[in-house]
């Protein structure tokens, strides 16, 4: 089943410069009772975003109208903790297409890539540059070009290249699916099984 093709994105960005944002913050466990993939965006960052009564917390960035866009700029070690793919689903479902950080937790990175959410890992200094640019001018546009593996602050032209596994890049650009790929080599898998028995 192919998914959406990842296009170059130029968008405003939302800054969340907090370290070690774990997947329990992204989507708390009590919202993992659903048996489908949809609708998790509603509870993205639930306990940072809403108070007990369900009213939005004014000081949280997603409730601040100043910041919008499909790029989330997080702090170091983003997505640590639980392997729940619901975290990637929630971020994507909310409307983000890219998450930027200086460091991603391994499982989160895989989960994001498997859901058309691009994790862009940049240097700590470029992350700081991005955060400063966005915070000083929320209408700063950020361009993420997957083909060129380049993230650019449109106004200043400051840019940095980022790494991505070439296979995963192809998958994202073409909307390919890992499972389709694995199914296509099933004979090889059966051969492998025979070879070890």
């Amino acid at each position: 089943m192919s998914s959406e093709k990842f296009q170059t994105i130029e968008s405003l960005a939302v800054p969340l410069p907090i370290e070690n944002v774990d997947t329990d913050q992204i989507i708390p466990a009590r919202f993992l009772k659903a048996t489908t993939r949809e609708g998790f965006g509603e509870n993205l960052f639930r306990d940072w975003r809403f108070d007990k009564s369900g009213a939005p917390k004014k000081d949280f960035v997603l409730n601040n109208n100043t910041y919008k866009g499909s790029i989330l700029v997080g702090g170091k070690n983003f997505g640590s903790g639980s392997s729940r793919e619901h975290a990637a689903w929630a971020i994507h479902d909310y409307g983000f297409k890219v998450v930027v950080s200086s460091f991603f937790a391994d499982i989160f990175k895989n989960n994001a890539l498997n859901n058309g959410l691009l994790p862009v890992q940049v240097s700590e200094s470029f992350l700081l540059t991005l955060i400063r640019a966005i915070e000083s001018n929320p209408s700063t546009l950020i361009k993420v070009d997957l083909e060129e593996q380049l993230i650019t602050i449109t106004d200043s032209g400051a840019s940095e290249s980022f790494d991505i596994n070439p296979y995963k890049k192809e998958c994202l650009l073409n909307g390919y699916d890992d499972i389709d790929y694995l199914l296509s080599i099933k004979e090889k898998i059966v051969e492998f099984e025979k070879s070890r028995s």
């Binding site: 993939r37 990637a88 895989n110 989960n111 498997n114 596994n165 890992d178 898998i189």
Partner: peptide
């Protein structure tokens, strides 16, 4: 090691996952 749900589906479908070597 722990995996996400898309990877759970890979294992269900093919008993394999795609994984970069750590």
């Amino acid at each position: 090691f722990g995996i996400g749900t898309s990877e759970v589906e890979m294992v269900m479908a093919t008993q394999c996952i795609l994984q970069p070597k750590p």
